[in-house]
Design a protein around this nucleic acid. Structure first.
Lengths: 341, 341
DNA sequence: CTGAAAGCGCTTACAG
DNA sequence: CTGAAAGCGCTTACAG
């Protein structure tokens, strides 16, 4: 009612501009073999009619989906949401669509990768956020014609972007060492298998490097898995504080875990940072509300970079292999202080 | 390499099953005018070949996109991410696709709604998360053939789902009143115009109702806008605590704001809850780490409900108008306590 | 219950 | 630089 009920088709534009549909198609997509005067005529007609190509028709005819898939381990988590935000922003201005797929857990991931060929006409590219692949899955992705870039983890033969995790961890631990701490606990990834995610083992690597430089031997008692969750970190913290010789500082590899640790310390009557220093990684928006010292990273930037690579590859019909490590930055607030004595 | 490079087409399945493509199409989509034996034969052939319909072709032919759009004000925010998670979960198992569109700010929203007709062959349904529409925009959506449901706000003629905001606010304020508080501040939505979002004015309504029942007149000095952000809430809290007669309790209409308020109180040397009680709404995962008393809501449930309605409407070729208010629940932790004196 | 055929609205060689 | 025509892979009346 009011406006034309039916959307205009390419044929309507062609008629209005007095050219063929082929020319309209070329002109509107900015292909280069169109006379400038023709292009302007077509553009004017299209604007006038409010024409926009029917996406399904375009996709079918061109054999390309013009959409990028984003597979995330946990859509509702802060980190993933941030990354998706970055992807979305870039893709929106490039005219690509975003298809978000939740891939929670190993089973879902296996199915998703096994079905990757089916994705082949749904998406032209794929960004995997924080998803740990098996060897054969990497192989499978490499053989597919999809442009894929992984965020958080990296694999030979696939593009990847991630924060410089080793440096990030070293920033945190060096800060604690400089304050005089020597018993520094690490709350890392999955409790049953902390090395499962690359993020986790790279951050442990940074932790180890810093301690080693100071001539400190890593004490296995001070290594705890926090499952990247508040609850996991709380349990880990209780175990650490129950040690006969408890740590004077805790480095948690995410702010959410650091905040969980801080809460437990306070609940147990400790003063932070007088009795226990705490550092995280992320600079989560809520970190500031508890004055958490942390290492800032920029997840939207990761997403944006990944998206930009894919779009470039697609537009130039290439498939370049890129890798990037994003810088991080120590943000000192009030949960870290001088070690006692 | 290895697997067939080309995905099978419907024709391949038809040949393998010894039937026509029309029959394959019907059988695979579960239409009812297919003999059971035929259906099984077709299904077997499809499974064998690993066939899956090319989505763009199906969309073009059927004239339906089989995807649902989700327009969110702030993809990276906790609340929106939660809702999108709920939508995704339902849609995934219904075989629908999700198209996430970021609509940040009035300008983006206006463009999005103006272009809604273009969405018409991209999506069959639309869920709007926390997006405040103008009158003419509501009209426009109602006239479109899209199934739309709004989350957070509600409009005549459009389906909507949201927490019972009035009750949620009353739970929070009644709790404070029961503890003896009489000067209870409210940190609500946008500072320049707190009534802009429905969430905000409904929660203010609950606040007012509770106070009024107790015979307390609302003091305009105690009404502050926190912009739904940590920083906004921090600024608001400073203003409140600078009052000649400061509040003894603060009710912030989101946990992120409540956590911002708590941080400021602590920073200013106040004890929580001895000097100042604080309540939020959400039960954000991090609320627990500061022992925040709050009113729990379930954003994924909102998203799931919205998605379910749309899918049902689509499958039954109907367009029913539904409205639902979700229950909330008071979670008492340690940021609220008896009022002094 | 099933099949042959038209058509969904584009893009892309192919010719000119 | 432009056009006529085939074709992308499905779905859906229509007829039987």
């Amino acid at each position: 009612m009011g406006t034309n009920d039916q959307n205009p088709r390419i044929e309507d534009v062609a008629r209005a501009a007095g050219v063929s549909v082929a020319t309209v198609s070329r002109a509107l997509r900015g292909l280069d073999n169109v006379a400038t005067s023709t292009r302007e005529k077509v553009q004017a007609a299209a604007d006038e009619l409010g024409y926009r190509a029917h996406p399904a028709a375009a996709k079918l005819a061109a054999g390309s989906s013009h959409t990028i898939g984003v597979a995330v381990a946990n859509i509702a988590g802060w980190y993933c949401a941030q990354v998706v935000g970055g992807v979305e922003a870039v893709l929106a201005e490039s005219g690509y669509e975003v298809l978000v797929v939740g891939v929670a857990g190993a089973e879902a991931r296996r199915r998703f990768i096994a079905d990757i060929d089916r994705m082949h006409h749904r998406v032209d590219g794929l960004v995997l956020v924080d998803i740990r692949l098996e060897h054969d899955e990497v192989e499978r992705l490499r053989e597919s014609e999809l442009r894929v870039v992984t965020i958080g983890n990296s694999y030979p033969g696939l593009s990847s972007v991630r924060p410089d995790d080793i440096s990030a961890a070293r920033l945190a631990v060096d800060h604690l060492l400089a304050l005089g701490h020597r018993r520094i606990a690490l709350i890392e990834g999955m409790r049953d298998d902390p090395m499962r995610t690359e993020v986790s083992w790279r951050r442990r690597e940074g932790y180890t490097q810093s301690l080693t430089r100071y001539g400190i031997v890593v004490d296995p008692d001070l290594l705890e898995g926090g499952d990247f969750s508040v609850i996991g970190a709380q349990e880990a913290t209780h175990r650490l504080l129950d040690l006969i010789e408890p740590p004077t500082a805790i480095f948690a590899i995410s702010d959410e875990m650091a905040m969980g640790a801080r809460g437990v310390a306070v609940e147990r009557g400790l003063n932070v940072p007088e009795d226990l220093s705490i550092v995280g990684i992320d600079d989560h928006p809520l970190a500031q509300t508890v004055a958490l010292t942390t290492v800032r990273q920029d997840p939207p930037a990761s997403g944006a970079t990944a998206a930009r690579w894919i779009v470039e590859d697609l537009q130039n019909d290439q498939c370049v292999l890129s890798t990037q490590e994003l810088e991080t930055e120590l943000v000192v607030r009030s949960t870290t202080g001088l070690a006692k004595r």
